[in-house]
């Protein structure tokens, strides 16, 4: 027992160390955010839960494949056309309402699909479905401008209509008198 009495100060030191360690561990768990560094630091010095948080946001832009599930005829029409890489959303809007209604209609026959709306500006900012014959839809891309590559079909509207001898050059639907939208020939 004399041996133990001699080392009493060592036990006090040990107890202090243990207490300090516990306090430091508590402080760490209070200050460091949950999932930070994850187990054994496999994900690096960040909050691993943030990845799921960012990935959980819903998608807004709809892929063409979603549209083609119902509109297979349009897909076939576009396949070999010059507009094969043009996306549905460019001319018809984001159509999120339309897709939701169509998906509901596929499940229950009572659900209705609202008719498409008239064009007003850039359809990418709208969530409705649009069907338009407005030439502004075409000219968003095709209006001749500095910077366009050589391969691209550039249109100077006035010159082009003059060349073709258009009957109604001021008509909004003038492009669709000769050209199709899905299949652009001629």
């Amino acid at each position: 027992m004399k041996f133990l009495l001699d080392t009493k100060h060592l036990w006090i030191l040990l107890a202090l160390l243990v207490l300090g360690g516990v306090a430091a561990w508590e402080a760490r768990s209070w200050m460091v955010p949950d999932t930070y560094g994850d187990l054994m630091g496999r994900y690096g010095p960040y909050r691993a839960a943030a990845l799921e948080q960012i990935a959980a946001r819903p998608s807004v832009i709809i892929a063409d494949s979603v549209c083609h599930e119902c509109h297979q005829d349009v897909e076939e029409e576009r396949t070999d056309s010059k507009h094969a890489t043009v996306r549905c959303i460019h001319c018809h809007g984001l159509a999120r309402k339309h897709v939701a209604q169509a998906q509901a209609a596929a499940k229950s026959p009572d659900a209705t699909i609202a008719p498409a709306q008239e064009w007003d500006g850039d359809p990418l900012t709208k969530i409705d479905l649009y069907i338009t014959q407005d030439r502004a839809t075409c000219l968003v891309c095709h209006e001749e401008n500095v910077g366009m590559p050589e391969w691209f079909q550039k249109i100077n509207v006035e010159e082009h209509l003059d060349d073709q001898g258009a009957e109604e050059p001021d008509s909004k639907e003038t492009c669709f008198e000769c050209h199709g939208g899905h299949d652009t020939a001629p």
Partner: peptide, 10 residues
């Protein structure tokens, strides 16, 4: 899915 800009590039 593809990023939105890739999806929207004509």
């Amino acid at each position: 899915e593809q990023p939105a800009c890739v999806e929207a590039c004509p």
